[in-house]
Nucleic acid binder design. Structure first.
Length: 734
DNA sequence: AAGGCCCTTCTTTTT
DNA sequence: GAAGGGCCTT
């Protein structure tokens, strides 16, 4: 075993801590994963604990996989029976195993966000509610928070009229889930807690088994998760929690960093170990990060330190707009690569919201450079992927009415609204599900007792569809996932449906092929296992081994990762911190922690970028520099934003030298209004000729300090930025 | 029934 | 500046 000698004294004492409740407060880059893996290896290798008596819980599958691999490497062998997984996957496993105690069967499917939306919309319709006043998303938020707080539909107390509606929706929504043989994400957690409460003998079984429970990212646990762990650890009390309250960024999902303090209150005898030595970043980067997080009220200060004294100054850059911001990132990466200071794969670009990735992606595309984008949700959220998966889900679980509705007329097969209405009616009148009616139609064809009410055309379509379903359903056990998927795709002519000759169509089909690849990788996994796996992937899970290209990801997805070079874009008030946090102090604190997470991802170089103007809702507006940038001492900064005094003056000068007409800036600090520059001379995608560079296409026109600038991609030399006044461009036709 | 067009309404973050 | 919903025509 990789000896304990490779760990520092603090880490060592964490690894060899006596049994009992233990809390490891681990600053960023302090080697918490090493501590966790060594701890497990120590328990197994030195303390003789059987692997099956250990549970290690993480938040992402990637973290779970990594932990397992690293423990196995330490022990030089397979660890049979060790439970490593995410909260959600471990809970799903428990629930399937104990399904006899549940309202759903062991085959239950997991409903994702859009399935939940569909179900709530159904309830809204059923109750004749106004979906503006009672927006599905709002209702779902309420329901989700309730579940995270372990409040079931019956316990939900309605103190206001709105909550009265929420309660009714919640009750009905839960009924529908059960009718669909489905659970949502929150049900997985709450379901296990409830199961344990109702069936102490089941709980006792697991309590006995799990002598040691280790938890990563403790600060991100919510009430349901916290309660679950307390239940499980009640007998042996060997709860080993690793976390950092400064990195808690999932409040919207019910996470409560106060669970760190709660741990100490609930286990007064807990051993607490602080890991403050950082092995990742330069001191410059750490100082900046500490300066930001130290402004967080009501927090215990940590004094992070590193051997990596000094380091490159942090480059703070103000771009003109988000295109310029993205261009700066691309140019800088090119420059770092050229000078050998970093490879493209060392670089990461982080942003607050997914929407911000677009301008960055466009800049990479324009430069013809590759990048990798993190985001499983984006992939699995695509319509074509959801549709393909809906077929598989329906084959697996015919009770899944949400999937049925998705695919019954995709691709179009002549089953429209009227037919669906009739189908529903038939089902309800006979006390059956829609799937039952379809199956009967498929089985009995023209002899079906439901024929009478159906028109000829509709009946044929329904019979055909019913037959396909029945056929696939009975074949599902004999085929590998990828074969089943191929069969379905072929039969429904999905390629022909998607690939309509447009670029988008081609891309859609390419996405389906990617899903096919995932299915092929699933090997001989059962359909149930496959569906669960794809339901529970996280954004981070899609991040394979380090690539050769820069990584684009949200700050949330960046948690737990590190990169030699980090760019954080969008350091503007309203973006980071996000607009939505302005009137909620707790939310604002979380924005600060998010900034802290981003800063501490960087090992060597950090670039903080903002845009002077940024398009929002379509038209563009001016923004202020993020307050978080202002918290970083200027002596750590370089770049055009390193002197804040002058910047404020610059805004003023720049703003007042614009066309003047619509401007009413009286003081430099007053919030600037939207400025309309005069009409551009050139238009986007216009062809032009330059005396030296030859022919090109205008990508963008803009005004900088009253000067008109155009960005042009030339056939000969690529992208150039030119001043119209100087460039003498000739416009071409076409 | 299906496809197209115009309208609105948003946009945090994700297991 | 996209995506969904409502309303139109074929």
């Amino acid at each position: 075993m990789d000896s304990l000698a490779s760990l520092n004294p603090r880490q060592q004492s964490a690894v060899i801590a006596n049994p009992g409740p233990t809390l490891i407060l681990a600053g960023p880059g302090s080697g918490k994963t090493r501590v966790l893996t060594h701890r497990i290896a120590y328990l197994v290798g030195q303390m003789g604990v059987a692997p099956y008596r250990i549970m290690a819980v993480t938040f992402t599958n990637k973290a779970a996989r990594e932990m397992k691999t690293r423990v196995e490497a330490l022990l030089e062998g397979q660890l049979r029976g060790l439970t490593v997984g995410t909260f959600h996957s471990i809970c799903a496993r428990f629930l399937r195993r104990e399904a006899e105690h549940l309202p759903v069967t062991a085959d239950f499917v997991i409903f994702d966000d859009s399935d939940q939306q569909a179900l709530v919309k159904q309830v809204i319709k059923e109750f004749n509610l106004n979906d503006k006043q009672y927006a599905p998303g709002k209702l779902l938020n309420k329901i989700s928070s309730a579940k995270n707080e372990l409040i079931g539909p019956d316990e939900f107390t309605a103190s206001t009229y709105f909550n009265e509606i929420v309660k009714r929706v919640y009750v009905r929504y839960q009924q529908l889930l059960v009718a669909n043989n489905a659970l949502d994400f929150d049900d997985l957690l709450m379901g296990v807690v409830e199961l344990f409460r109702r069936h102490p003998e089941v709980l006792a079984k697991y309590q006995r088994q799990y002598e040691h429970i280790l938890v990563d990212e403790w600060q991100d646990t919510n009430t349901a998760q916290y309660t679950l762990l307390r239940q499980l650890a009640a007998q042996h009390r060997n709860l080993y929690a690793v976390g950092d309250p400064d990195q808690s960024v999932y409040r919207f999902r019910g996470a409560d960093y106060r669970n760190v303090r709660k741990f100490q209150e609930d286990y007064p005898d807990a051993l607490t170990i602080l890991l403050e030595r950082n092995y990742r970043s330069t001191q410059v980067i750490l100082d900046a990060a500490m300066a930001v997080i130290d402004q967080h009220p009501g927090r215990t200060r940590k004094q992070l330190f590193t051997e990596r004294q000094g380091g490159a100054a942090i480059y703070a850059y103000e771009a003109y707009n988000e295109q310029d911001e993205a261009q700066f990132v691309v140019d800088t990466i090119a420059e770092l690569t050229r000078t050998g200071l970093a490879a493209p794969g060392d670089c990461a670009v982080m942003y607050r919201t997914n929407a911000q990735s677009r301008s960055v992606e466009e800049a990479f595309l324009r430069a013809g450079l590759p990048y990798r984008l993190v985001g499983a949700q984006r992939f699995y959220g695509r319509k074509e992927i959801k549709d393909a998966l809906a077929y598989l889900r329906l084959i697996h679980n015919p009770a899944d009415s949400v999937s049925l509705l998705r695919v019954i007329n995709t691709p179009p097969r002549g089953i429209g609204g009227k037919t669906l209405e009739l189908l529903n009616e038939l089902a309800t009148a006979n006390g059956l599900t829609v799937a039952d009616v379809l199956r009967d139609l498929g089985d009995s064809g023209n002899q079906s007792r439901f024929m009478a009410r159906l028109g000829n055309k509709a009946a044929t379509s329904l019979i055909n569809f019913g037959r396909m379903l029945t056929h696939w359903h009975s074949a599902r056990g004999e085929l590998a996932i990828v074969q089943l998927l191929d069969t379905v795709l072929n039969r429904i002519g999905y390629k022909e449906y998607l690939d309509d000759g447009t670029e988008e169509g081609e891309e859609r089909w390419a996405n389906v092929l990617e899903l096919r690849g995932v299915a092929a990788d699933a090997g001989d996994m059962t359909l149930a296992e496959f569906l669960e796996q794809v339901a529970l992937v996280s954004d981070q899970d899609t991040l394979a081994e380090e690539g050769k290209a820069p990584t684009l990801l949200t700050l949330h997805a960046a948690k737990g990762l590190e990169f030699p070079v980090v760019f954080i874009v969008g350091l503007d008030e309203g973006v980071l911190p996000h607009q939505r946090s302005f009137d909620d102090p707790e939310a604002m604190h979380e924005e600060r922690r998010l900034m802290y997470v981003g800063l501490t991802r960087a090992k060597d170089r950090l670039y903080l970028i903002r845009a002077f103007r940024r398009s929002l809702y379509g038209d563009s507006a001016l923004s202020d520099v993020s307050r978080f940038l202002g918290d970083i001492p200027t002596n750590l900064l370089t770049g055009n934003l390193s002197n804040r005094q002058t910047r404020a003056e610059t805004y003023y000068k720049r703003a007042t030298t614009w066309d003047g007409g619509t401007l009413n800036l009286s003081t430099p600090n007053q919030k600037p209004v939207t400025v309309r520059p005069s009409e551009p001379t050139y238009r986007t995608s216009q062809r032009v000729r330059h005396a030296q560079f030859g022919e090109g296409i205008v990508l963008e026109t803009k005004f900088v300090g009253g000067d008109e600038e155009v960005i042009i991609v030339f056939e000969s030399v690529g992208v150039k930025r030119l001043a119209v006044r100087v460039a003498k461009l000739e416009t071409l036709k076409g």
